[in-house]
Computed example of a mutant assay.
Amino acid sequence: MKKVIVLGSLNMDLSINSDYMPKKGETINGYDFLINPGGKGGNQAVAAAKLGADTRMIANVGNDIFGQEILNKLKEYGVCTDDISISKFDSTGVAVIICCDHDNRIILGNGANHTLTFSMVKERLDAIAEEGDIFLTQLENDFQVVDASIRYAKKKGLYTILNPAPARVLEEDLYNYLDLIVVNQSECQLLTGIYPNDDESCIKGLQAFENRGAKAIITLGAHGSITQMEDTPVFVDSRKVETVDTTGAGDSYIGALCACLAKDMPVKEALEFSTKVAAITVTRRGAQVSIPYTEEVESYFKEEKTHE
């Protein structure tokens, strides 16, 4: 089976619920405070590992309590941490998350995530990557490092996947080094000028990415996800569940997708499975802790089918 190599961020998530978002200068009472390892890279790696993929993580944490706890949890979830650096000079990244009305707002403190260098990434890829492995990354690390790493991974024969979040405009020629880009609706709009909210606009968005050289998957929140295979749209509807916390939902979907691709699962089947993983994730609080294992996915939807 192919390896899933994740270059990305590792944060300690500090989340709290509130009845409404505080106004400027306002202090309000919150509840259900939770400290939980996160970061888009870490979340996606955990999802891939929990779902059976041989998952390696290239990242950087601080030499502090948060960094050690993150490493311990990644190991517990099955992610290989041998390629994670520990900075002597930078603190571990943090994410402050306010959860309100089944949605969230996040403030990032980049810390050691932004002192990971391309030379560090290149060294680890040279040591562990094999042709055909899956290389997954996002945009919570320094952009120049991510950009250079994608190009290098592609040249080494890896299957390159980008989740461009937090969203930003990309260099046009970078698309030539991407096999797949996974975007949500707002990211699609920023990168293509097209907001995908119906069949026609979704197809136009997918085609805009293909015209630049990359296949795309667009996630549509509660409305599912869509891609295109040989000019034919492939749509997978969302699964209806009771939402508790949306933190990590998109990351669980992408990590699950990588685990499926590592097993050479057909695309539509991979999207359907990833949708199930994301659905279970939003029924639980937290990021990595909320992501299900394969057995949980099979059990949850087997029971759902029994009750239909």
Rank of each mutant, 00 (worst) to 15 (best):
K2V: 00
K3P: 01
V4S: 10
V6G: 11
L7M: 13
S9C: 12
N11R: 09
S18D: 03
P22T: 09
I28L: 02
Y31I: 02
Y31S: 04
N36P: 00
P37S: 05
K40D: 09
N43M: 12
A47K: 04
A48R: 11
L51Y: 04
T55K: 04
R56T: 03
N60W: 05
N63P: 06
D64Q: 04
G67A: 08
N72E: 09
N72Y: 06
Y77K: 01
I86C: 04
F89Y: 15
F89D: 15
S91W: 12
V94C: 14
I98F: 11
C99F: 05
C99N: 11
H102I: 07
H102P: 03
G111Q: 06
N113G: 08
H114I: 09
S119W: 08
V121G: 07
L125D: 07
A127G: 06
E130M: 12
F135E: 07
V145W: 06
V146E: 04
A148V: 06
R151C: 05
A153F: 09
G157D: 01
G157R: 00
R168Y: 10
V169S: 13
E171Q: 13
L174C: 12
Y175H: 13
N176H: 15
Y177M: 11
L180G: 07
V182L: 05
Q189E: 15
Q189H: 13
L190G: 08
D198S: 15
I203K: 15
A208G: 06
F209M: 12
N211G: 13
R212V: 07
I226V: 08
I226G: 03
T232W: 03
D237G: 08
T246N: 07
S252Q: 04
C258G: 03
K263F: 00
F273L: 02
A278R: 13
A279I: 10
A279S: 14
R285Q: 08
R285L: 05
S290R: 03
E296P: 01
E296I: 03
S299E: 15
K305S: 14
